[in-house]
Amino acid sequence: MNLIVAILSGAVVYAVSVLYAGIGETFTERSGVMNLGVEGIMLMGAMSGCVTAFHTRNLALAMLIVILTGAVLGLIFAFLTVTLQSDQTVCGMAMLILGTGLSGFLGEDIASKPINLKFTKIPLPVLSEIPIIGDILFNQNLLVYIMYLLLPLATFYIYKTRWGLKLRALGENPAVLDAAGENVFAMRYGYIVFGTTMMAISGAFVSLAQTNVWQEGMTAGKGWIAFALVAFSSWNPATLALGALLFGFISNLGSNLQIYLPGVPTEIFSAMPYVATIVVLIISTGNFRKKHTAEPAALAKAYDRESR
């Protein structure tokens, strides 16, 4: 029983660690922009959070810096892709490499040093008393609880509000919104910056909630898993959450089973999420038969007013 609770509550933590980034990427892609640099931005978030926490001993300030870091990276990415209309794939890779390098560069001072300041578990009164479920869902840290609120909010925003309607249209055909007098460029800037901010928070979750240390490249592909989950979820936050939980489950199943299967190399368990990503991606996005996909039609296409 304890094992199952451990696996499932671990799955929730894992899911949240990719969900912030996943929601960010969902909004970005819905607006018609593909940001391949999730991993790099997450690393910057993880690093900036740790460095601030280490030096100031102030978690709130650390999160503020994380958000600012994400926003600045978002502005750079938006400038390149929206204003200069550069190839989004190339820009995404540039963000990946910049994020990986810069986070390693600026974080070297505190690499592998314990921070001793993290998001600790806060058992929610009453709710955490519920047997099993209480331990799995309501004995978590603050960032997990915020995610519980964020998910329904994001879904509501996309499907039930005026802005969500515009967002859905933006990724399909920006020219329509332009003709209706909306500022397509400003909207895309906004969603890109929102996206990168969320990715940075995801990174901070890894370094300040899941672990409590900064290490170079510590997100270890989580950004890519988030990126893959977005396509898997058909750009729908609710499905995204389910996908993230599934991944959390697979990943935690491995690390918990490890103890019971001593002969098996640990690498096999660590490799499971990556193998799972490939399998899930092939199953969910492979067009074995032609079908109507939910992919935003204008995804990864720069909006150029002149070439309408």
Binding site: R162, L165, K166, R168, A169, E172, N173, V176, A179, A180
Partner: peptide, 20 residues
């Protein structure tokens, strides 16, 4: 100038500033 994945009503309201 229509968004294929949205409904007729949604397309019309996309174009309407008085949309709630």
């Amino acid at each position: 100038h229509l968004i294929p994945t949205l409904s007729a009503a949604e397309n019309v309201f996309l174009y309407t500033p008085s949309c709630k």
